[in-house]
């Protein structure tokens, strides 16, 4: 199987974000592989272990994204393609077009994996646009997957405690969610091997895309202030609970 996995280089979940220049942020914080993309990589690696083939990472990002690509290569992917941009935030429609071009130039995909969303811009749409560009079917938020010769069965949560089971024709795009698998930490030999794996770099300007008209653009980024300290209710359990219920009723008008 020829499997492509789209991987994004994003600020660490625990990183402090400092807004810079009104719509940007200080990119000096620690960056990681987008957590949902790790489930995508692991699923692809396991599929290729069972069926043979190749796992190719595709990243749209700055040159610094190579560090996250190395981490994903250590998880067992074979090689990578970096589509170089000079912005952390690219409109999702453009990202999908860039991913499509890079994949189509490289080979013929049997499956394409993505994370269900990035944790920085939280666009939640690239898998759908990528599928549309290839004329493939797509399912995201996938928590269970089984792949046969020309179809897959995918499960995702649809809220209210319900799970939907879908039948999807290959080739297809799968958006991975937490729960799909449990990626192990790469061991040292895998990390060392990953350093020697090929990462081909392509400049986004050389893909023949019209970058001058993004469908959406970020015009302002603002830090969200934390709430202050909690008002603590004291006394016996009964007393503190009664004070809480009173506050929720009379001050907050919720109950």
């Amino acid at each position: 199987m020829q499997i492509y996995v789209c991987v994004k280089h994003v600020p660490d979940t625990a990183a402090r974000i400092t807004v810079v220049g009104g719509s940007g942020f200080a990119e000096t914080c620690k960056f990681i592989v987008n957590p949902y993309d790790e489930y995508a990589v692991e699923e692809a690696v396991q599929l290729v272990k069972r069926n043979g083939g190749e796992v190719v990472l595709v990243t749209v990002g700055k040159e610094s994204a190579v560090s996250s690509m190395r981490s994903a290569l250590a998880m067992g992917a074979d090689r990578g393609i970096l589509v170089k941009t000079d912005a952390q935030f690219l409109d999702s429609a453009l990202t999908a077009q860039a991913l499509k071009k890079a994949i189509a130039q490289d080979g013929t995909a049997d499956m394409i994996f993505c994370g269900r969303q990035s944790i920085d811009s939280e666009g939640m749409q690239t898998p759908f646009r990528l599928a549309q560009a290839f004329g493939m079917a797509v399912v995201t938020d996938v928590v269970a997957l089984s792949v046969n010769e020309n179809q897959a069965i995918a499960e995702h949560d649809i809220g209210g405690g319900a799970t939907e089971v879908l039948q999807i024709q290959l080739p297809c795009v799968i958006g991975a969610n937490r729960g799909l698998n449990d990626p192990p930490y790469p061991k040292l030999p895998q990390v060392l091997r990953a350093k020697k794996k090929e990462i081909k770099q392509v400049d986004i300007a050389d893909l023949g895309l019209d970058l001058s008209f993004p469908l959406t653009e970020i015009i302002k980024l603002e830090a969200v202030p934390e709430r202050g300290k909690a008002k603590i209710f004291e006394g016996s359990t009964r007393e503190s609970v009664e004070q809480l219920v009173k506050a929720l009723k009379e001050e907050e008008k919720i109950l």
Binding site: P11, T13, R16, I17, V19, S23, F25, I119, D120, S121, E122, T216, E217, I218, I219, K220, L221, E222, A223, V224
Partner: peptide
Amino acid sequence: HFSGKTVATVK
């Protein structure tokens, strides 16, 4: 954006 650490205004 960034898991609720910031809010982005998008045009």
